[in-house]
Write a protein that binds this DNA or RNA. Structure first.
Lengths: 111, 111
DNA sequence: GATACACTGAACCAAATGGTTCAGCATCCG
DNA sequence: CGGATGCTGAACCATTTGGTTCAGTGTATC
């Protein structure tokens, strides 16, 4: 058992287009496994696995209601993911800035 | 061959902690495969595979210099990833708002 | 030229992923 | 009650993933 921390599980969950679509669908309101599976032409079992992955990433919560299972978006707003991406952008910008300065310096000493 | 679109490859690339660390390391400046591999106690071949994944996601660019390979951050600022996350957050917020309104309405008609 | 160094490709491996089918088990409906 | 519906667990499968080792190849360095 490798025991991925939450951000790993989250990025991995978001790497699959089917799962991102499911999240977007759930943005319209909760749905059952059957309703989620139908537009993808995928088996119920297959969709249930995707939902499980999303639950593990705490992006989706589910509840058994009668014979159906209602799936809804969880409360996570992906703050950690967004924070990582933003830190990365800032880092990149700094690096490019420093590269720019370097070019600027080099300009004075050609050949 | 499933041929993942770029955003899939990007999320997948970011799902691995080793690869995120490599990106952060490269934020300090470019490095060779050997330099990248060393802190993880991983083989050169292993690190090269990680770098390949990052290259496929266009997060890293590399260049052969003599017998070494210089790896640096590519120019991608993860705009698409950030856009997806932000859209998701907005969607979530709207859904929570509507849920709030629903609670509000229900308040007037108890039992 | 000889030796060391950095990387690379091929082969292999175990585990995870994304999917399937099939056989239940509850639950709902008439 | 009996049938249809909705989900679930187990078993299976092919592919991908994250890692390895080993045997090169090309480049520096003495």
């Amino acid at each position: 058992m490798v025991q991925h921390p939450q951000i790993d599980r989250t990025f991995a969950a978001l790497a699959d287009p089917t799962r991102r679509s499911v999240l977007e669908r759930l943005g319209q309101g909760s749905a059952t496994i059957t309703e989620l599976a139908e537009p993808f032409g995928i088996s119920l079992t297959g969709m249930k696995k995707h939902v499980l992955v999303l639950e593990d990433a705490e992006l989706v919560v589910t509840e058994k209601v009668g014979r159906a299972r209602r799936c809804s978006l969880g409360p996570r707003r992906l703050d950690d993911v967004q924070a990582w991406v933003e830190t990365y952008r800032r880092m990149l910008d700094e690096r490019l800035d420093r590269f720019g300065e370097l070019l600027e310096q080099t300009k004075g000493t050609p050949r």
